[in-house]
Simulated assay, not measured.
Amino acid sequence: MENRKKILLWRWIFFLAGLMVMSLGISMTIKGQRLGISPWDVLHVGLYRNFGLTIGTWGILTGLIIVLTTAAVMKQWPKIGTWINMVLLGLFIDLFNWLLPEFSTLWGQTIIYVIGVVVLSYGVGIYVSPNMGAGPRDSLMLILAKKWGISIKVIRTGIEVLAGIIGWLLGGPVGVGTVLIALLSGQIIQIALPQCQKLLLRIIKEEDQQVLLK
């Protein structure tokens, strides 16, 4: 019983820490927004420009649509972590946007943007590794990768490109940074996820990866 409590505790620690790391990475890319915003944010801005509401509201609504769609396809209700993700991610992003300084030069924005892409990708790897419930978009990525037998990097890149194209058609802003995130984030997550899973298993002193599925 004690061992199970320890495993559950560490899984939650990884989940929450991963959300914070991912939020930090997203905020870093926002600070370098002169290069362009992420594909999903291109979509949210495009929807905002065409149908009103707010960008944040569209982020929540698209996430909710994805959650309900994947739940219907998988015939399984999302884990509580998925809902927690939807709430905490926005709060953490606002916090880091307030804490991080502004970068006025192009070089400064470029550096913070590139580092941010790596940080947010590893954040995804950290919070997904304990299997407490991925966020709406990452849940879709994992489901499609498993269902079609395609690597995470290919699925992630495909989803990001599709979201970016739809957002661009709706009038959302696209820049070189948009392409950078779409092409690189899936590649980095493909490397980060197994590394984070191995680290978690080492901390809880387990060798069987199935322990993360319980």
Rank of each mutant, 00 (worst) to 15 (best):
G56F: 02
W58K: 01
L61I: 12
T62V: 15
L64K: 01
I65M: 15
I66S: 01
V67C: 08
T70C: 12
Q76S: 15
W77S: 09
T82C: 11
N85Y: 02
N85S: 03
M86V: 11
M86W: 06
V87D: 08
V87T: 08
L88G: 00
L89W: 00
L89V: 12
G90I: 08
I93K: 04
L95M: 10
F96A: 00
N97V: 01
W98F: 13
W98Q: 13
L99P: 07
P101Y: 02
E102T: 07
S104F: 13
T105A: 06
W107S: 13
W107I: 13
G108M: 05
T110M: 14
T110L: 15
T110P: 09
I111L: 14
I111W: 05
I111T: 14
I111H: 08
I112Y: 00
I112P: 01
I112G: 01
I115W: 08
V118L: 15
V118C: 07
V119F: 05
V119G: 06
L120C: 05
L120N: 01
S121V: 04
Y122Q: 08
G123R: 04
G123D: 06
V124H: 03
V124Y: 01
V124D: 05
G125S: 12
Y127Q: 13
V128F: 04
S129T: 00
P130M: 11
N131D: 11
G133D: 12
G133Y: 04
G133V: 03
P136F: 00
R137E: 05
D138C: 10
S139D: 03
L140T: 08
I143N: 12
L144H: 03
K146N: 15
K146P: 09
W148E: 15
G149E: 14
G149C: 14
G149S: 07
S151I: 06
S151W: 03
K153H: 14
V154H: 12
V154Q: 12
I155K: 10
R156V: 03
T157H: 08
T157F: 09
T157V: 09
G158I: 03
G158L: 08
E160G: 04
L162R: 07
A163H: 02
A163W: 07
A163E: 11
A163S: 15
G164M: 01
I165S: 11
I165F: 14
G167F: 01
L170S: 05
G171C: 03
G172K: 04
G172E: 11
P173A: 03
V176N: 10
G177Y: 01
T178L: 06
V179M: 14
V179T: 07
L180K: 07
L180S: 05
L183V: 15
L183S: 01
L184F: 14
S185G: 07
S185P: 07
G186S: 06
Q187H: 14
Q187D: 09
Q190E: 15
I191L: 15
A192H: 07
L193G: 00
Q195L: 13
C196S: 15
C196A: 10
